[in-house]
Design a protein around this nucleic acid. Structure first.
Length: 693
DNA sequence: GAAGTTTTGTA
DNA sequence: ACAAAACTT
């Protein structure tokens, strides 16, 4: 057995400690640690600049650690992950591949085909849970259905038998492969292009990527802000969160270890009758719960990165307004709290979770922009960009979840400003043009008397914009749009009913809309329709608005005279962040991306890991629904746009993701939803079976 | 002490 | 937005 050579395929588990794939491989002989950078497979979800910067640093750190144990990290850039793995297998004579599970839609699909491809070549593949407390297929409600509300899900998780064990220590020594294996440096992977380096240099002042720094961040958090997590949760300015999220995203820190450490703390505090401390832990664990839940949703509802979980908003008339979108990105909406947040995001890649909620809520409800645009922007710009959390966050805010905010709940940025930034310091830090405005007016400069504005050097409409949409107008517009949506839905329902009677089934078209209703909120489709004369590549770029490059941003900034943080401001801003050390990042991000590879199937339960029953069920599903992938959706103008066709785990989920069979939930309010969803999924499933029979 | 008003919490 | 809690009268 000592002669057996194993590849450990690192992905987003860039740590030595508590890494099940690495531990298992170490037991079976010599270890070849591998990282493959394969941008071609990321599609639309190619990581943004700051995220790639983090990855690069983290890889260098991991490589150093692995080297000192005796087996350096093999880094390769590839067009196809499977081919590259096979090439490395060939070169090293490895007979086994070990890796930890991922749950985002891209990885689910890729990992399944990789596993299949390796197995076909006689390589034995072993996969593990290195990212979650519980695998998504281990948690179901009393009816055996997947949860669709968070509280019930998290309650169940907390009640599952789970005795946190002390994290497994890193291996002491690794036996490396014999002979030299082709590899490149982290630099040569091309994670950072030369135009990005100067901006990225600033990031290193505030953050230390790498698994051992993640441990230090954890330590700092346990000793520091965990104590006051609950009370400080509201404070948007200053270091009050764990700052662990980028470390968690890249798996530099094991969630199981985090859970273990935090729980241990909680036990201590309970013994000391420290009720406040105990409460703090409960709240923090809840935010870990949201991270778990994001994976859970992504796994069970693999279409949620591009379509709402609920079908209730499928005919909502989102505004495809590029100018609004741009004003939001640049922090020029005229609402100081929103703008401060967007400037901070722009400059640092970081936002307090509270501010993420504020800006995303404004995005959806004041501007009525499609949530997927916002999700993509977060994916492109956040340091802790994480697809599953991104999806969960935006669906939560946009009224697409049974237990999220409803779409017609409009939060007032002025009110939120005084609640979360009572002294206006946060706004002053990020909006220098308002820095001299007294607190009285800082969150609503449009009400300020001219004398006050003049004294503060503020000229509304010139160096700081007036509100892009007034609150009252926004409210009316939202109501009107909702009314329009109800109308469309009623019409749709009537026609669908007719259609079914006539046996037309699910693809009924509604006259005058050019297609099934759900497509009206589909970014791809609508934009294509609006821009029918442009070229293919232009269209592709437009599928989802793309983050401008730094130079484009700077150009825009100079045109817009002042107030956009360009380099100097960024520097100042970053300097104002938590000083050097890994302060730990924590609030879980709403980050995201979206999009497809070709033909694959999804799912990857590992027999040895996840229990016979689950594995058997998933395997069965692979076999029965194995064909899915990119399909072409023919537009009315004849242009074909690739559309992600979700891979499928079960018939019920297939139905949930097939647009016209999406459950009827328009009027269902929170709470009562879950059961109805599953029931109507089942009903839809049965109907379809009988139709096809 | 009941009824009305304001604040707080919700991710 | 809305409900529940806290606070006033």
């Amino acid at each position: 057995m000592a002669t057996c050579s194993s590849i450990v395929w690192f992905r987003r588990d860039l740590r030595l400690e508590d890494n099940p794939a690495l531990i298992a491989a170490t037991r079976s002989g010599s270890v070849i640690p591998v990282f493959i950078w394969c941008p071609a497979e990321d599609g639309q979800f190619h990581p943004g600049r700051v995220s790639r910067w983090w990855l690069k640093q983290s890889l260098m750190h991991l490589d150093t650690s692995l080297r000192s144990l005796g087996s350096p990290l093999i880094m390769r850039k590839a067009d196809n992950t499977l081919s590259m793995l096979l090439e490395i297998v060939e070169a090293t004579g490895a007979t086994q591949v070990f890796f930890n599970h991922l749950y985002d839609p891209v990885s689910l699909v890729r990992d399944h085909s990789v596993k299949q491809g390796l197995t076909e070549q006689g390589i034995s593949v072993h996969t593990f849970n290195g990212d979650l407390l519980h695998e998504p297929w281990q948690v179901y409600d009393d009816n055996g259905q997947a949860f669709t509300v968070f509280n019930a899900y998290w309650q169940k998780c907390l009640n599952l038998p789970y005795e946190p064990e002390a994290p497994v220590l890193p291996p002491r020594r690794l036996t490396g492969p014999i002979g030299k294996i082709l590899s490149c440096s982290a630099e040569e992977l091309g994670l950072e292009d030369s135009s990005e380096k100067s901006s990225n240099a600033l990031l290193a002042r505030a953050w230390c990527p790498g698994w051992s720094y993640a441990n230090k961040s954890l330590e700092a958090f346990l000793q520091g802000s965990l104590l006051e997590y609950a009370t400080n949760r509201q404070k948007v300015d200053g270091v009050t969160t764990s700052l662990l999220s980028p470390h968690l995203h890249f798996g530099e820190l094991s969630v199981r270890k985090l859970f273990y450490e935090v729980r241990t703390k909680q036990v201590t505090w309970t013994r000391e009758a420290n009720a406040v401390g105990e409460q703090n832990v409960t709240l923090f664990l809840r935010s870990i719960g949201f991270r778990e839940y994001s994976r859970y949703l992504s796994f069970h509802f693999p279409f949620t990165h591009e379509r709402s979980l609920l079908a209730n908003l499928k005919s909502f008339p989102w505004r495809m307004d590029e100018a609004y979108f741009k004003a939001w990105r640049q922090g020029r909406t005229g609402y100081p709290l929103v703008d401060a947040g967007m400037r901070e995001l722009w400059a640092t890649g970081w936002l307090h979770n509270r501010i993420r909620i504020v800006v995303s809520s404004f995005f959806v409800k004041f501007l009525q922009l499609p949530w997927r645009w916002g999700m993509k922007y977060f994916w492109d710009t956040l340091l802790d960009a994480d697809l599953e959390c991104d999806v969960l966050g935006w669906q939560y805010i946009s009224g697409s979840l049974p237990d999220g905010h409803e779409l017609d709940r409009m939060d007032n940025p002025q009110v939120e400003g005084y609640r979360f930034d009572p002294d206006g310091e946060y706004v002053r830090r990020w909006l220098p043009e308002l820095s001299r405005l007294p607190t009285e007016w800082i969150h609503h400069p449009w009400d300020a008397p001219l004398t006050a504005l003049r004294a503060a050097g503020v000229e509304l409409g010139t160096n700081y914009p007036r509100p892009i949409v007034e609150m009252g107008v926004a409210r009316e517009r939202l109501q009107a749009s909702l009314a329009e949506m109800w109308e469309r839905e009623a019409a749709s329902k009537a026609i669908l009913a007719n259609g079914l009677e006539e046996g037309l089934g699910e693809t009924t078209e509604v006259p005058g809309t050019g297609g099934p209703f759900h497509e009206r909120m589909d970014v791809h489709t609508v934009v294509v329709r609006q821009l029918p004369t442009h070229s293919g590549s232009f269209l592709r770029d437009r599928l989802v608005p793309v983050l401008p490059t730094t130079s484009q941003l700077q150009a825009a900034a100079s045109i817009l005279h002042q107030s956009i943080p360009v380099e100097e401001d960024i520097e100042e801003a970053v300097a104002a962040l938590p000083p050097s050390v890994p302060s730990a990042s924590a609030d879980l991000s709403m980050a995201g991306h979206s999009r497809p590879l070709e033909g694959h199937v999804q799912g990857f339960a590992d027999r040895s890991q996840s229990g016979q029953e689950a594995a058997a069920r998933l395997d069965l599903d692979f076999n029965s629904t194995a064909e899915s992938g990119v399909r072409e959706s023919a537009e009315s103008d004849g242009r074909a746009v690739p559309v992600w066709s979700p891979s499928v785990l079960s018939h019920a989920q297939l139905q949930a993701s097939a647009e016209c069979v999406v459950p009827e939930i328009a009027n269902v309010r929170r709470g009562s939803f879950s059961r109805r969803l599953t029931q109507s999924m089942l009903r839809a499933n049965q109907e379809t079976s009988s139709l096809s029979a």
